[in-house]
């Protein structure tokens, strides 16, 4: 974030100060990679070190253990998003006094757009984290989960054109989980609706439903696994 802020200060023609501020100086991008790593490790490392046995033979139900990991990850992600928000404000006040938080950006303000960007990113990353937890439970290895998590992160933008054509042809495809990965982009920029063919509330709901489905499948695998 600091590097992008400094670059934006030094080369405003490369990175606009307002755009960087509303985009949290790209902090969400790096946080996404970090959280994908944490999500895979929080499960896979227990299998890797053999500590899963010591966790599971306790008096607690497997559901409680799985839920404790999900809750820990959820709280950890919230703390990190709050830190990114606060650090964005610090960078803005230190380096960009010319950017007013109440300045207009589309229909909202700089501060409002920053909020939308962070909320959208948070909902989008949780769809990916739920998938990562599922994969880590399934394969008991962190590398597979991280790879799939990072691929998922880029999948929406890489496959955007192909997906857009496919949705044009087969409308029901708009409900596929890959389309839900666009939730962050659409919350931040409502014109994305032309690509996803879903309203923002529907896309957000769909994304949350898929997140819950992935978590439930992950829990089922965790519950049924012999260790």
């Amino acid at each position: 974030m600091t590097i992008f802020a400094v670059l934006s200060k030094a080369k405003p023609e490369w990175f606009s100060a307002k755009g960087q501020t509303t985009g949290a100086f790209n902090g969400t991008l790096f946080l996404a990679f970090f959280l994908i790593g944490v999500a895979s490790t929080i499960v896979a490392s227990e299998f890797q070190h053999g500590t899963i046995k010591a966790l599971l033979y306790r008096k607690y139900y497997r559901g409680e253990i799985f839920a404790s990991k999900v809750i820990t990850l959820f709280l950890f992600s919230i703390v990190n998003y709050v830190l990114i928000f606060l650090y964005t404000l610090i960078l803005k006040f230190v380096l960009f006094s010319n950017v007013a938080l109440d300045a207009k950006v589309g229909k909202t303000t700089v501060l409002g757009q920053l909020g939308l960007d962070l909320v959208g990113s948070f909902i989008g990353i949780w769809l990916i984290l739920a998938l990562v937890l599922l994969i880590a439970n399934l394969f008991k290895t962190g590398s597979a989960a991280i790879t799939i998590g990072i691929l998922s992160y880029f999948a929406a933008s890489i496959l955007q054109i192909a997906q857009s054509f496919a949705i044009e042809k087969w409308n029901w495809l708009k409900w596929n989980p890959l389309n839900m990965l666009n939730v962050g982009a659409q919350i931040s920029d409502s014109t994305f609706k032309s690509v996803t063919k879903l309203s923002t509330p529907l896309l957000t709901t769909g994304s949350l439903v898929y997140t819950v489905i992935f978590l439930l499948i992950g829990y089922y695998i965790f519950k049924k696994r012999n260790v």
Binding site: S45, G50, T51, K53, L55, R58, K59, Y60, Y61
Partner: peptide, 22 residues
């Protein structure tokens, strides 16, 4: 059983190899 763990509060175990975080 796999689904009923309450009684395991009274148990300590070492199975196969020590469960250790390096």
């Amino acid at each position: 059983s796999e689904a009923s763990h309450q009684a395991l509060a009274k148990v300590g175990a070492l199975i196969e190899y020590p469960a250790i975080y390096p």
